[in-house]
């Protein structure tokens, strides 16, 4: 089908069907988040007041309530949750890059017939259940878990290390689950790297480490940023990992939103938290789009 070959009606249908689906079920819902975040909670089903209310017959009034946002700014709980999310997302993104970059590099430099199986092995854990991969870490990290048993058996420690329900457990869980998301884009940029540049540098007497810092690393930056954002953005809203591996002091936006919604049944406050999260994520998302487009353009 050349661009011109499809009949206009078919063409319109191909565009309109996915466009309207996503507009209705992906874009429009954000307007409802905004709307409910401006309403008051109430004991009813659904548990929020309408913005437009009839006061006397025929008279309607619009009640906009900013108190949820006011609470987000005034109660330190919410700002520390925002800070906690930023911290966990940033640190685990850094560790994903520190572990993922050498792996992607090693796969990209491996013999041709090894690359596909090695990549498959990176993706394979991603196909097994996310919940179960986190569950596996509970068995390893808990007080009488595998790691503590091993270290105590070797005589390296006397009493179990407290790793479960600490920030460290959350970092381990996040890095473990999000590692494929940095390895794949990094591999894609590293495999396209023009090796003759490195040969030229070596011929001119450039040391391997300098070659890496001056050529490989700068040229793989689009992959680094894309991979970093693929981790950073979803981790900002992560709920399952801090809930199962973290402790009560692990404050993160996604977990707090879940509690406000499911335990406190405060839909308006949960909505304002979602709105806050969305605003924070706009900049990382723009970065991701920019660098993904750049790496697409580099694609022959």
């Amino acid at each position: 089908m050349k661009p011109t070959s499809a009949r206009p009606s078919t063409r319109h249908l191909i565009i309109a069907v996915p466009w309207f689906w996503l507009a209705l079920f992906f874009l429009l819902p954000f307007l409802f988040v905004l709307k409910i975040s401006l309403s008051e909670p109430t004991l009813a089903q659904p548990p929020y007041m309408d913005l437009i209310r009839e006061i006397e017959d025929g008279f309607v009034t619009l009640v906009i309530n900013f108190s949820n946002y006011q609470l987000l700014l005034e109660d330190s709980l919410y700002l520390s949750a925002l800070w906690g999310s930023l911290k966990v997302a940033a640190i685990s993104t850094l560790f994903c890059l520190l572990i993922g970059y050498p792996m992607a590099y090693a796969i990209a430099r491996s013999p041709l017939h090894w690359r596909l199986p090695l990549l498959m092995l990176i993706i394979l854990p991603f196909w097994t259940s996310f919940l179960i991969r986190i569950y596996a870490w509970i068995g390893i990290l808990k007080a009488n878990g595998l790691l503590n048993n091993l270290l105590m058996g070797l005589g390296l420690i006397d009493s179990p290390l407290a790793i479960m329900h600490t920030p460290l457990a959350v970092y381990i869980g996040v890095v473990y689950n999000y590692l494929p998301f940095v390895v794949l884009p990094l591999y894609a940029t590293l495999i396209r790297l023009d090796l003759t540049l490195l040969e030229a540098a070596a011929d001119l007497g450039c040391r391997p480490w300098k070659q890496f810092l001056l050529i490989t690393l700068p040229l793989s930056m689009p992959g680094v940023i894309a991979g970093a954002m693929l981790v950073f953005i979803p981790v900002m809203g992560e709920f399952v990992i801090p809930d199962l591996l973290g402790g009560p002091d692990t404050l993160m936006l996604g977990k707090l939103m879940w509690t406000e919604f499911f335990s406190n049944k405060d839909w308006p406050l949960a909505s304002s938290l979602a709105a806050l999260l969305l605003v924070v994520l706009i900049l990382p998302f723009v970065l991701l789009r920019h660098f993904e487009r750049r790496s697409e353009e580099g694609n022959p």
């Binding site: 819902p29 409802f32 988040v33 954002m229 979803p234 900002m236 709920f239 996604g254 909505s271």
Partner: peptide, 19 residues
């Protein structure tokens, strides 16, 4: 709209669709 769902935190997708 095709790229955003790939990274959108699932708590946001879930809450917004419920509303």
């Amino acid at each position: 709209m095709v790229t955003a769902p790939l990274v959108m935190p699932d708590v946001i997708i879930g809450l917004s669709l419920l509303l």
